[in-house]
Each structure stands twice: as C-alpha cells, then as structure tokens.
Design a protein around this nucleic acid. Structure first.
Length: 156
DNA sequence: GCCAACGTTGGC
DNA sequence: GCCAACGTTGGC
C-alpha cells in the first residue's frame, strides 16, 4: 500500500507543532475531532507512516508549519466516553464507539511557515482542499503532487 | 469582531 | 424526510 498524505489543522493556542515536538516520543493522540468526514478518514483510511502536513489555523497568518506522520491508525477516542471531558458525547460508548482518532508523531518543523496565501498563489495547488473556500475540515487528504510542492515551498 | 459556509438538531 | 434554527469553523 502506497504511503498517503494528509493535512491536519490545529489552533496553535490549543496545540501547536512545538507542543507536539515536546511530547514523549513526539507522539500525541489526535482526540476531540467531532466531524463525521474527518472521523471516517481517521478510522478507515489513515495508516501508520502516512505523511501529515501540520497546519496552524486561526492565527495570523495561517499555514503549514511542519511535518508529522501517522504513528497509530484509527482507534476509538476515549475522551468521548468521559462525562467530565469537554469532548464527551453520550451517544458514544466503548461498546459502539462513535468517534475515532489517530496518533500523530512529530517529524520536523519548517524553518519558515508555508502560509495559506503562498499555497493559494502556487501553481499546482489550485485544487488543494485547504485552498477551497469554506473548507472547514480539520483532516484533509493531500495528493502526492501537492505534498511534493508544499515540501519544495518549505525548502526541501 | 464579522460573517460566509457549512454541519447538526429537532419540530413537524 | 424536510428545513429552519442554531452552532461552529476559521479566514479576514
């Protein structure tokens, strides 16, 4: 199976690439996603070793700040089972989990962020999901071509 | 802080 | 099953 590529959004105030770097082994469970499209990708499609563009949103400017990889493929998100947790969902339980997550591992931070503005101006990235208006998905598929272009923009 | 673009919820 | 109301995302 060929390695696949993804883009994952996070608000750096909540969890940044530096936070990821500082985690033991650089690994963090990507809990709290409560969107079915994103859930399906994490549960069904993302595999260990897949590449992840780490994207900072709700910050000025927004953009891709580094690389991560999928460290563990989809498994149930335990925060959905915890009544005291902010991401608790009474409709999810261990018998029939509704929400899934993957583990993400830090790979490297770019010396300079590749801004959303740059992504939009770069030929070849016209149909990249993150460039579409109103695209709110926090987990998005990235094509191998898009992946390569973004890495080039980042300086190798 | 605004608001467009969604996704979800719930009354019917 | 429709759809209005509501909530959220996230760039600007």
């Amino acid at each position: 199976m060929a390695r696949r590529y993804w883009l994952m959004k996070t608000e750096p105030e909540a969890f940044s690439i530096d936070d990821l770097r500082r985690r033991p082994g650089g690994v963090e469970p990507w809990d709290g996603v409560r969107n079915y499209q994103a859930r399906n990708m994490m549960r069904d499609e993302m595999k260990a070793g897949d590449g992840v563009l780490f994207y900072h949103s709700s910050v000025d400017p927004p953009g891709v700040v580094g690389l991560a990889e999928v460290a563990r493929e989809g498994y149930p998100d335990p925060t959905a089972f915890d009544p005291k947790h902010i991401h608790y969902d009474p409709k999810s339980d261990p018998e029939s989990p509704r929400w899934y997550m993957v583990d993400v591992r830090f790979v490297r931070a770019f010396p300079h962020m590749v801004t959303l503005d740059t992504l939009r101006r770069t030929p070849g990235l016209e149909s990249m999901k993150v460039n579409q208006r109103g695209m709110r998905l926090s987990v998005q598929p990235v094509t191998p071509k898009e992946w390569e272009i973004v890495l080039k923009l980042a300086g190798g």
